[in-house]
Amino acid sequence: MKRIYISAALLILTAIGCHMALDRMESAVLDMTEYAQAITEQINHERFDQTESEIQKIERLWQREKNLFRIINGARQCDELETSLNRVRIFVLQKEKSPEALSELSDFILSAQRILRSQRPGLINLL
C-alpha cells in the first residue's frame, strides 16, 4: 500500500514540477521576446539610448534561466539561442539601423519561441 501512495505522490510531484518548469520557461521566453521587440522598435526609430540596457536585461535573464533551459531542452538548442544572443549584442552595440541587426533580433525571437514551442504539451508535439 505504501508503494502505491509513493507512486501516486511521485506522479503528482512530477506533473507539478513539469508544470512549474514550463511556466518559468514560458515567462522567461515571453520577457526575452518583449525586450527583443523593444530593441527592434528602438532600432527602427533609431533611438539607441535604451538599446544597451535592454540587451543587458535579456542577458541577465538568460544568465538566470539558462541552466533550467539546458536541463530541459538540452545543449544544442540553448547553444543556438546563446549564439544568436551574442550576435544580437554585437549588432545592437554598433548603434546603427542595419538589416543585419533586425534580422538577428528576429532570429533570436524565433529561436526562443521555438524552444518554448517544442516543450508545449499539444497534439502536434505529441505526434
Binding site: 512530477t14 506533473a15 513539469c18 508544470h19 518548469a21 514550463l22 530541459i72 517544442s118 516543450q119 508545449r120 504539451p121 508535439n125 505529441l126
Partner: peptide, 8 residues
C-alpha cells in the same frame, strides 16, 4: 519535458 511524459 511535459512532452516526454505525455509521449511515455
Amino acid at each position: 519535458m511535459f512532452i516526454s511524459l505525455w509521449r511515455t
